[in-house]
Amino acid sequence: MLKRRSFIALALALAGCATPPVSTVPLASWEALQVQAGEQPLGIDKQASKLRAYIFRAGAAARLGHNHVLSATDFDARAFLGETGLSSARLQMDLQLDKLLVDDPTLRAELGGAFAKPLDADAIQGTRANMLGERGLQATVYPLLRLRSVKLVGEAPRLAALVEIELHGQRRQQWLVLRVNEQERRLTVSGSLVLRQTDFGLQPFSLLGGLLAVSDEIVVEFEIALVKPNAAAAATG
């Protein structure tokens, strides 16, 4: 145990000089979607909506590290149904990075497996500071993760979506699969995608020549509960 603690202490001591921060210029503002003629605006039920991101340990000494789960329910979403229904729908989601909850103990226990072990408060605070700080997401400069639909193909309950993602001052497009549960006054849209940190100019955390690291790939899952106008009063958003 002493050897393991010594290794982790060394890793934390080196973290401050592991990787120089990335310098990029903030993008022009991302304009919020506005309703267009023939569209039906949808409300968002924030209590029934959620986002989770999974970060995985890597490197030869991965067993000494931890997997991490980030979660959020307090994010903004705008959605509009077109005259032809889901195929012409438009969706935008904005998440303020400093509202991310890091390694919630209840959520870790629910996930089980390699996430089951709870982390102490100091470890969680250290992880949060590294992720959002100057050598990570630089959340004070780039405070938002944004996603918006570019093209939708298919029919409920499955659609293919081309989405544009903005993170850390850069934008990328990729395809993902959406699952749609449509009820009389409610739409639940869920999906998952893989973000590669290096695609957005981020350098995955790495120490001792990669002996202790995190994977470049981050798995993101989301579920957005949308409410049609007549039921919008029931939504919390």
Rank of each mutant, 00 (worst) to 15 (best):
A28M: 06
R78W: 09
S206M: 08
Q40D: 04
D103F: 07
L207S: 04
G154Q: 07
A28I: 07
D94V: 14
S49K: 01
S149I: 09
V25L: 14
Q174A: 10
D76T: 15
E184L: 14
R158F: 12
K50A: 12
V189E: 05
Q170G: 06
Q47T: 08
S192R: 04
L176D: 02
G201Y: 07
G237H: 01
P157E: 03
R148F: 00
K3L: 13
P20H: 06
P26N: 07
P143D: 03
L95R: 03
I218P: 01
L211W: 10
G209C: 04
D45E: 14
K228F: 09
S23A: 13
A123M: 13
N230D: 05
I224Q: 01
L107M: 11
H68K: 04
L152C: 03
A232M: 07
A234K: 00
V150Q: 07
L187Y: 06
R78A: 09
T73N: 13
A11H: 04
K228L: 14
A72T: 02
G169W: 04
L95V: 14
S87M: 10
A48F: 03
S215D: 13
F80M: 01
K151M: 10
A235Q: 04
Q170I: 05
D122E: 15
V102H: 08
P26W: 03
T84C: 03
D199R: 02
V220I: 15
P118R: 05
Q138H: 08
S23W: 10
N181P: 00
G112E: 04
A116K: 13
E217C: 04
L101D: 14
A225M: 02
A53G: 09
R158L: 12
D98M: 11
L212Y: 05
L145S: 05
V35C: 03
R179S: 10
L132S: 06
M131D: 07
Q197G: 10
G113P: 03
A48T: 01
L144E: 06
G38A: 03
E221N: 12
A116G: 04
D216Y: 05
L152P: 00
A60T: 14
V102F: 15
Q92R: 08
D103R: 01
P143S: 03
Q96G: 00
T198E: 12
A213L: 08
V163Y: 02
L101P: 00
P118V: 05
T24M: 13
I165A: 09
G154E: 09
F205R: 06
P41V: 11
E134Y: 01
P26Y: 09
Q36N: 09
G169Q: 02
L10N: 15
A77I: 08
G16T: 15
R158M: 02
S29D: 12
I165G: 09
G191S: 05
E31M: 04
A232R: 12
L100N: 05
A156C: 13
L91D: 01
E31H: 10
A77P: 08
F115P: 00
A114E: 15
A77C: 15
T198N: 11
K46Q: 14
Q173E: 11
Q36W: 07
Q183T: 07
R148Y: 00
L159F: 11
G237W: 00
S215R: 06
Q170Y: 01
R108L: 11
Q34W: 03
A13S: 12
E164G: 08
H66R: 09
L137V: 06
N130V: 07
L178C: 04
F75G: 06
Q92A: 15
L159G: 08
S6A: 15
Q36M: 11
R63D: 08
